[in-house]
Design a protein around this nucleic acid. Structure first.
Length: 739
RNA sequence: GGGCGACUAGCUCAGAUGGUUAGAGCGUUACAUUGACAUUGUAAAGGUCACAGGUUCGAUUCCUGUGUCGCCCACCA
């Protein structure tokens, strides 16, 4: 071979070692300040009037550490950001973390209980919150380090936290505006009460588990004319009606009649009502109405103006006065009531059925529907949107939150990728009910409402004067995350950031939080700013293991992205995550896949070694004005690869872009171009071949950079030194190859 | 019950607006090689693109139906 010459960087003489390189490179990036667009302008790498590209990081929960799903998210977003930055755009990516109210609180409660045997009430609100904040801080620090390990080019100077001072002001300001306009109201409603967590949970935080249950058919008393069925006989002490279908010939004659009965020692007064919602075919076709402990029954009771006595309390215990049941847990009470029915000869049938039981996602507690005084956000109430940038909702016209959520996506102002998630989104909106925003937990944004006797005050700050007490509830965590795109940019202040970077360009997140979060951001931004929060929603899939199972703690099949990055390099993990994962598609990840990409990093390294050992400032002559046809063809193909990559990234096909670049680099550049060049380097076209190799190498590095930023930055530096380039720009702000 | 999606090589997956012999990685087999390469390269085997109809000059791609799997939503008291 031509040489094993001294003038090649000695780093290249050994195989590529990601371990120390990556942390070193990250430090160089951070020190450069170029993650911050203001700094890019100051240093002249970005024009002040360049087009803007902005994005917020979906803030990870401060409940622990990042998993592979986060790694995928960070990778996809970093690719988009690096690509746009290299294209010369004024690029901002704002990082942050989410306090994740109930998730974090219950996690800390578990730890404290395990270690000290105490619950939060033993510690008291103040001490408990101190503990949670400490935990959140530690967790935050871990997460930040993990993000750096993955190579994210976020602007740390703008980092935010959903529960910091500025975001708290945003929350209070938004709450007050909604309260003043009557969109936020307080009311008795059936809520999903979690007796284990002692709090309300939203509909979306309820998960259903299938279990076997007994389905009992019986009458309230001997002289009661209609049999009813239920899986929860203990709730029947709270019945105030039996509902039948208006057209049901069996029961028509009873409608309107009222009966008294002694049911398991509790006096009940039951009216027969006719209601369209009753299914004639199900059970006996007659439904015992328990208004206080069932959503649908509550609605029936409301329609027929029935009393709604509560018979179960917050601890899932019976609160009736009958000696048989008083203070008993619901499960015990069920046995007691069934036994009573047997003895009285009222039980007619007992069947085994499988039933979906509601549980709380975070604590696993069995949901007890209870009527409670809660805060709600009305999604159907009309209000006037004073200043609107939403197509189809003119400024000054009346609209609803639901309409805002619908219109912005319908009219294409917000695009969802992949497209079919739009259908899911609309379907969800159709069925959306008022959003219960209060939580009976301590960790979170305290509701900005104060009471003094009968007086209620809602304000950004506490009211003047003595004797006011603040509402003890906190807000659903998604209330503050709903403001995220603009609260991180400084709202409610009228900041420059807000003017320049909002609405953001893309929101990249997992499809599983389309409703929790994406929809709520659209709602909040529409209401508060009369605008959209982002132009495009890019949804990534779930990361699964080699067998296609979800990664979970209980299965123990999780792969820690940090362990992987340590072993194979973050570059390898990144490109392994992206290749084969189109938007909205689940992807499988396993060590062999990542190992393969580590080889790719090494391939880049070796290609650089080959090129630099054959091309250097001494043997490189004048750049030829015209290349021979064969080299011309090579450069044309290179240009075409760049063009394809650009188009694919712009059209959300990162997986294709990554694969094509990989294919080109390995199987065209390394296997063909370099192999062919070995001969040419000794022939008459040696100089133009050197130029060609240098050009292909440098251009390829740029194309690979968004996907594998560390190794490309390292090689870039070596290349620059090798040729003694004076302007030593980082590849991170290098110019993206012309398409 | 309602909705959404998937089904392509042994395995994991690409195949945007229908158009020659359907692609990659891993795996398998053969050969080469002290090579820029903790190897790598060259080549090979391997596919009724789930099934059945339809539209079309032409369907893996569009339409209808069937089957299997997965996910989301609702929830029957």
């Amino acid at each position: 071979m031509e040489n094993k010459q001294p003038n090649i960087d000695e780093r290249l003489l050994k195989p590529y070692e990601s371990k120390n390189t990556e942390s070193k490179i990250y430090k160089i990036w951070e020190d450069s300040g170029l993650f911050n667009p203001d700094e890019c302008i100051k240093k002249g790498v970005t024009k002040a009037d360049a087009p803007v590209f902005s994005m917020v990081l979906p803030p990870p929960n401060v409940t622990g550490t990042l998993h592979m799903g986060h790694a995928l998210m960070l990778t996809v977003e970093d690719i988009l950001v690096r690509f746009n930055r290299m294209r010369g755009k004024r690029t901002l990516w704002v990082p942050g973390t989410d306090h994740a109210a109930i998730a974090t609180q219950s996690k800390v409660e578990k730890i404290i209980y395990k270690e000290e045997g105490k619950n939060r009430h033993d510690l008291g609100r103040e001490e408990f919150l101190k503990r949670v904040e400490k935990f959140a801080q530690d967790s935050h620090d871990t997460i930040v380090n993990q993000m750096k390990t993955m190579g994210v080019s976020v602007d740390w100077s703008r980092e935010a936290y959903t529960l910091d001072e500025k975001r708290n002001l945003a929350v209070r300001t938004a709450f007050k505006k909604m309260y003043d306009e009557g969109l936020i109201y307080r009311g008795h409603r059936i809520v999903n009460w979690d007796p284990k967590g002692q709090t309300t949970v939203s509909d979306d935080e309820v998960v259903y588990e299938e279990r076997k249950a007994k389905f009992y058919t019986f009458k309230y008393s001997k002289d009661f004319p209609i049999s009813i069925s239920t899986t929860r006989p203990e709730t029947k002490v709270g019945d105030t009606a039996v509902a039948v279908h208006p057209d049901d010939p069996r029961y028509k004659k009873f409608v309107g009649k009222e009966y008294d009965a002694n049911f398991a020692g509790v006096h009940i007064h039951v009216k027969i009502v006719a209601d369209e919602t009753v299914d004639k075919e199900f059970g006996t076709g007659a439904l015992g109405v328990t208004p206080a402990h069932s959503m649908t029954d509550w609605d029936i009771a409301e329609r027929h103006d029935l009393p709604r006595p509560q018979v179960i309390n917050e601890y899932a215990k019976m609160m009736v006065d009958a000696p048989l049941l008083k203070g008993k847990k619901t499960t015990e009470a069920r046995e007691i009531v069934v036994e009573w029915l047997r003895q009285e000869g009222l039980l007619e049938k007992e069947e085994e059925v499988s039933q979906n039981i509601s549980t709380a996602e975070r604590t696993g507690g069995i949901i007890e529907p209870l009527p409670k005084l809660q805060w709600f956000l009305n999604v159907n109430k009309e209000f006037t949107l004073a200043d609107s940038k939403i197509d189809g909702i003119p400024s000054g016209s009346d609209t609803t939150l639901k309409e805002i959520m619908k219109k912005t996506v319908e009219n294409g102002q917000i695009n969802i990728v992949p497209d079919h998630f739009k259908k899911t989104y609309f379907h969800w909106i159709e069925n959306l009910r008022d959003w219960c925003i209060s939580r009976q937990i301590w960790f979170g944004h305290r509701i900005p409402v104060w009471y003094k006797g009968e007086e209620i005050y809602c304000g950004i700050n506490a009211p003047e004067g003595e004797g006011w007490t603040q509402d003890s509830d906190t807000l659903d965590t998604w209330f503050s995350s709903g403001l995220w795109t603009f609260s991180v940019l400084g709202w409610p202040e009228k900041t420059e950031d807000l003017r320049i970077y909002h609405p953001t360009d893309i929101l990249e997140t997992g499809y599983e939080i389309l409703f929790f979060w994406v929809a709520r951001m659209i709602l909040m931004t529409g209401y508060i700013l009369g605008d959209i929060p982002f132009k495009k929603v890019y949804l990534h899939g779930t990361v699964r293991d080699a067998q296609g199972r979800k990664m979970s703690k209980s299965l123990g099949n999780g792969i820690d992205p940090i362990v992987i990055a340590d072993k194979y390099g973050a570059d390898a993990a990144r490109i392994a995550l992206v290749i084969g994962a189109g938007p909205g598609t689940d992807t499988r990840i396993y060590e062999d896949k990542i190992k393969g990409q580590k080889h790719f990093a090494n391939k880049i390294w070796n290609v650089a070694r080959f090129v630099l050992s054959n091309v250097n400032s001494e043997n490189l002559g004048e750049k030829p004005e015209k290349f021979s046809p064969e080299n011309e063809a090579i450069l044309a193909e290179l240009k075409n690869v760049a063009k394809q990559a650009t188009a694919n990234i712009e059209n959300d096909r990162l997986h294709i872009a990554a694969e094509e670049i990989y294919q080109y680099f390995w199987h065209v550049f390394a296997d063909k171009i370099i192999e062919d060049s070995k001969e040419k380097l000794n022939g008459g076209k040696a100089n133009e071949t050197r130029w060609m190799l240098k050009t292909v190498l440098e251009t390829s590095l740029k194309l690979i950079h968004p996907f594998m930023p560390f190794v490309t930055e390292e090689v870039w530096e070596i290349v620059n030194n090798h040729f003694g380039n004076k302007t030593k720009n980082l590849i991170m702000v290098g110019e993206w190859p012309e398409a």
